[in-house]
Amino acid sequence: MDNAPLILLAAGGTGGHLFPAEALGVELIRRGLRVRLATDGRALRYSGLFLKDSIDVVPSATVRGRNPVSLARTVLMLGYGTMVAANVVRRLKPSAVVGFGGYPTLPPLIAARLLGVPGIIHDANAVLGRANRFLSSRVDAIATSLPGVLDRDPALASKATTVGTPMRPAILAAAAVKYGSPEMGGSLRLLVVGGSQGARVMSDIVPPAIEKLDPALWGRLIVTQQVREEDMARVRAVYDRLKINAELAPFFPDLPARLASSQLVISRAGAGTVAELGAIGRPSILVPLPGAIDQDQFANAGVLSQAGGAIRIAQGDFTPDRLAAEISGFAADPAKLIAMAQAARGVGRLDAAERLADLVMQVAEI
């Protein structure tokens, strides 16, 4: 195994980037290859495939504005990170470097380019992220989760392959769970998640929406909701007053299993979330994060909504009245949820890790 080819994976230190990297890593190891992860310091808290002794921390910085001083600091930090990454690449001698988005991928992939090591990027969004857009002309291959991402750029489209989003083992296990079809007059299991940037709006809108429902529905609801600590008391007070069966927490470590057991998901529309909803096949109400430069979440949600697997609601239209109307409609006609679950499942790709591993081995000539 020590002599097996090494693939260096590069990812930002958030789950949306790390989870696909983990899924690819699992598949590459299954094929007899070695893997390591290059990322920023946030990933040291990560407890998945990559242990601390298989992680190389590379300095990086994120472009957060147009202030000249801030931009200069970012460029200097990325330049320093590229020097560190070049030393890592020289030491490890990887057969290829695979990036999964986020600014921490810039130094390893730039270093790979400078040292003649094949580079591949994967983007899970319906539009390329800024870091991947910068790298797109500097790598040998581009893997996308969704078709048509680069149709408007023939030069890039020629080296693009649609593979889907690699799914970690917990999601693949959840995908094997059959959708629990709601019954007329039976319980309705809601899962409400928002991530660190989205949980506040869910805490603001979902409890008052549930309060607006016909009281006869309150006893049928089983609510699991991600709630930030600072919002916990006020959200719990509403559900306790209405006697809603609710489980609240800032974070659910078993989220894939909870996705599998849910009958309706209310969520932001991050690339990972949308891909997991498709893989598992669960109906959803998606509220894209507003204000993003590329409107990537709006485009991500559009993939499921156009397929009939989700309802996309802009945050400005995401009101208690609108949400209450949607939930009431589903409760009155559960067949809609069954149809949406099937439509979402039609978008999902369960073999994405295998497809991406095929591409990596082809580019690395393994």
Results as ranks from 00 to 15, higher is better:
287 V>K: 09
301 A>M: 09
223 V>F: 10
211 E>Y: 10
264 L>F: 03
275 A>V: 05
312 R>Q: 11
267 S>H: 09
255 L>A: 00
275 A>S: 15
214 D>K: 04
277 L>Q: 14
258 R>D: 04
238 V>S: 05
243 K>T: 02
259 L>D: 05
265 V>Y: 00
239 Y>P: 03
294 D>M: 13
260 A>C: 01
313 I>A: 12
227 V>F: 08
254 D>P: 06
234 R>W: 02
250 P>D: 05
229 E>M: 09
268 R>F: 04
276 E>R: 08
254 D>E: 15
246 A>R: 04
219 G>N: 14
267 S>Y: 10
295 Q>E: 15
226 Q>N: 03
301 A>K: 02
260 A>T: 02
207 P>F: 00
310 A>R: 03
218 W>T: 06
283 P>W: 13
296 D>N: 14
231 D>K: 03
278 G>A: 12
212 K>E: 00
271 A>C: 08
230 E>T: 07
254 D>C: 04
225 Q>N: 12
206 V>M: 07
292 A>C: 06
214 D>I: 03
251 F>R: 03
260 A>K: 00
231 D>S: 11
283 P>L: 06
252 F>M: 01
294 D>R: 15
230 E>N: 01
242 L>C: 00
204 D>Y: 02
257 A>W: 02
258 R>S: 02
221 L>T: 11
267 S>I: 07
269 A>N: 06
273 T>L: 10
226 Q>E: 03
278 G>Q: 07
286 L>H: 04
254 D>S: 08
300 N>D: 13
208 P>R: 15
255 L>K: 01
294 D>L: 14
243 K>D: 10
253 P>Q: 11
254 D>K: 12
305 S>D: 09
225 Q>V: 01
215 P>W: 11
265 V>F: 02
275 A>M: 10
220 R>E: 11
293 I>D: 06
213 L>G: 02
266 I>F: 09
236 R>W: 07
213 L>R: 06
227 V>P: 09
236 R>P: 05
208 P>L: 15
237 A>T: 01
215 P>S: 12
273 T>G: 04
231 D>W: 03
246 A>G: 09
270 G>A: 10
303 V>L: 14
244 I>F: 06
298 F>A: 09
246 A>M: 08
265 V>I: 09
241 R>Q: 05
204 D>V: 00
235 V>Y: 11
313 I>D: 08
291 G>C: 08
287 V>D: 06
268 R>W: 07
202 M>E: 09
216 A>I: 11
212 K>I: 00
239 Y>R: 06
287 V>A: 08
313 I>P: 01
244 I>T: 10
258 R>H: 07
312 R>F: 00
305 S>Q: 13
212 K>V: 00
235 V>H: 03
303 V>Q: 11
261 S>P: 02
270 G>N: 11
278 G>R: 14
253 P>M: 05
240 D>R: 00
298 F>N: 08
297 Q>Y: 07
228 R>N: 10
306 Q>K: 14
217 L>F: 15
257 A>P: 06
215 P>H: 04
220 R>S: 13
284 S>V: 03
308 G>W: 13
274 V>C: 12
301 A>H: 05
239 Y>G: 05
204 D>C: 00
230 E>C: 04
287 V>G: 11
251 F>Y: 14
237 A>I: 02
263 Q>C: 09
228 R>S: 08
215 P>R: 08
289 L>Y: 15
310 A>M: 07
234 R>H: 05
252 F>Y: 06
297 Q>M: 08
262 S>K: 08
284 S>N: 12
243 K>C: 05
210 I>N: 05
297 Q>F: 09
